[in-house]
Write a protein that binds this DNA or RNA. Sequence first.
DNA 1: GCCGTTTTCGGCCCGACTGTTTTCAGTCG
Length: 562
Amino acid sequence: MHGINREVAAQLRLMGDLLEILGEESFKIRAYYRAADSVDRLEKPVPEMDEAELRTLPGIGVNIAGKIVEYTRTGVIHELEEIASSVPATLVELLDLEGVGPKTVHTLWKRMHIDSVEALESAAKNRRLRSLRGFGAKKEEAILRAIGRRRRDTGRMTRLEAEAVIARLAPFFSETSFTIAGSYRRGASTIGDIDIVTTEPVERVTPKIRSVADEVLDEGDRRISLRTGGRRVDIRFTGQGNAGTMLLYLTGSQQFNIRMREIALERGLKLNEYGVTERENGTIHSFPDEASVFSFLGMAFIPPELREDHGEIKLALSHALPTLLTAADVKGDLHVHSSWSDGSMSIEQIARLGEEIGYEYIACTDHSASLGVAHGVDREDLRRQQQEIERINRKTECAVLAGVEVDILGDGNLALPDAVLGDCELVIASVHSGFNQSEDVITRRLLSAIHNDHVDIIGHPTGRLLGKRMPYAVDVERIIDAAADTGTALEINASPYRLDLDDIYVRRAHKHGAILAIGTDAHHREDAAVMRHGIAIARRGWCAKSDVLNTRPLKDLREWTG
DNA sequence: GCCGTTTTCGGCCCGACTGTTTTCAGTCG
Ligand SMILES: Nc1nc2c(ncn2[C@H]2C[C@H](O)[C@@H](COP(=O)(O)OP(=O)(O)OP(=O)(O)O)O2)c(=O)[nH]1
Ligand SMILES: [Mg+2]
Ligand SMILES: [Mg+2]
Ligand SMILES: [Zn+2]
């Protein structure tokens, strides 16, 4: 997300944290957190918006809009500075500890002058906390464990890591008895924990699960939470009869659940994970699947990828949701590397792989040779590779497209001359260097690539590496508009380490007339399967089939590339 | 603090689990 928006969201969150510690009313706190979320998912930088426009955003009213404007003008929010000055700076860090919330922090601070994690740790070790009302030996231990966990905290998972955790747990369930829910099911690009709904009886699963648990966090009749391999897993147990509302609940998102429950409320109904209750007479309705819940509420089925309370609920109520693209719509992969650069597949292996998957085409897009790129292809390599591709294409069902992933150099020029690019069937242009340049410089580099007639796709447009490297500074809005103007596609790089563009920008891109291209960036045979992650992101970005280039049959794709 | 074809004031999702409690507050999903 845009740097300045991240800053503003953090300020609003800090405001919420501080007010909460100070004991402010909970709905006011929620308002600040909601507003922060709203800014977080905004594709447009807030300094470009005036107060009136800010107020059109959900959860942002006259008060918070004013604070945002104040921050973008002066770099501070007065009220926040004032509140912050009355509270030790390190106090909010206590909230990061699992099991430590605003009330606890308030008590620790006011009654024991504890204002940092270090101070808390020493107080807990010395058994001083138990003298406080509401604190005992177990709480001291829990706090010490939470401090230990925080030290080992490894952040959010990639979808790949999430799948590794799921694979470890799957053998403990019978095939049809469990569903992965939470952010994984919603197709999110990073995953906080693994959430599972199961119809298995508690007593059958728990012993097996315990055997792989580093630690059981809590355990009851209806839920167990544990850590395995350093990762949190939440399991909810349910009967078949109300598996629908349980899955709906655990899939979320939180904001989606709240909005759905509000809608039920407006109709005199109470929605929870066990069913729908008529408030008037207590009649309970149970649902074995999600579809019947939506139908009961008079709504179209909302695909998990859309469940964020970003407008989908309203559209579902009027049965006006878009039809999202599906895996079956995808006709090929537009970004694959071969052994001619840093991949491991031969051209023939790529073609055979495409046949196995059932693709009509795969674009072979090796890295161009330039300074710092290992094993890049040059003009001569490409000429020979194109001959090889022609030879292979004569005997295989899946067409290999002779493409290239050309570097956008530091000065905005491409690493290969136009004449060479002109001989390629598909040109991806990507930034692989100069990540620390200013927003202006990087944006201009990308714009000049977009305006090159030979460039078909901008690869991984923001350059992020999940958990490793933030996106480079780039004006994505301008990139999207230029892509729309020139008919250049923007990539959804499906690598689970990238997922770039991400959902928010994908949605903006096709709304503004740009087309998306999903590519796996596969370097090895097994990487081709990451297409599913790219599809999830496209769906989260509200893409219909027509918004995505590689849903087109080969003939149409060839026409498009010209 | 935000919001509105039931409201411009008075609501704002609902429940599981833990610890410390003699009946529930706090935190989290
Ligand atoms: N009704 C309701 N449901 C919630 C609330 N918090 C969480 N949930 C539901 C929806 C979430 O998707 C689901 C799982 O919670 P998680 O904390 O694991 O969040 P989620 O998986 O969405 O994101 P994550 O990637 O794990 O951070 O539980 C809440 O406050 N109210
Ligand atoms: Mg989760
Ligand atoms: Mg969870
Ligand atoms: Zn690349």
